[in-house]
Amino acid sequence: MIEVQGLTKHYTDLRRGRFVALDGLSFRALSGQIYGLLGPNGAGKTTALRILSTVLRPTLGTARVNGCDVVRQPSQVRRQIGFISANTGIYDRMTAWEMVEYFGRLHGLPKAELAERMELLFERLKMNDIRDLLGAKMSTGMRQKVSIARAIVHDPPVLIFDEATAGLDVLVARALLSRVAELRESGKCIIFSTHIMREAEKLCDRVAIMHRGQILAEGTLDELRREHSEQDLEELFFQLISRHEQDHVPAVQQETL
């Protein structure tokens, strides 16, 4: 389970100066559920997920992964998560087998148990044909498969997918989504960030629509449709973002000036 309360992150860069990447984000994702983070580019999805994976520290607020605080107990948090990002994070000069084995060993799995688990995993994900292929020679789909295998080799209770379908063709994306659905069935708590509405509609049990570091709407898809009297999720998303843009841009500009 993931509990996020008032999560805030400030950055400074040349273009925007001091700006708030996350502004008091709060949500709760349960085990056996896929929680969708929906938002346009720059909404703060990746920042939130990086904080959940302890790679970044929050400026304010708390986040707990299976009861472990991301700031206080980062090591425990990292043992309970599998992180899959858009760029897959695959080493060019390692084979699929070596890569999954490496991360399995870092998670402290004994050699024999790891080998057994990897055999099953490679079988289930149909990766035996790319077992000895170097990362540099893999297609994007292959890389994403290896990335999933790497993230679930230690059977973590929480999985974080950061725009995992970006750059994948329709067939590979569809296969990935069905894998994510399978993982939900096995009782994992999954956070799935995307800006593709159809993926969220197909997959997510609950969604949070994010813009400029804030959650504009949160709930199940039915709850959102009912609350905003809009059946089409894409339309609903567009309306919320446009309204928020109109309401908050002057305030944001004032803040950054």
Binding site: V55, S75, R78, G89, H107
Partner: peptide, 14 residues
């Protein structure tokens, strides 16, 4: 540059 550092940082290795 290759995006692998983030993956390593989110692993249990300190």
């Amino acid at each position: 540059e290759r995006g692998t550092l983030e993956t390593l940082l989110s692993s249990p290795a300190e």
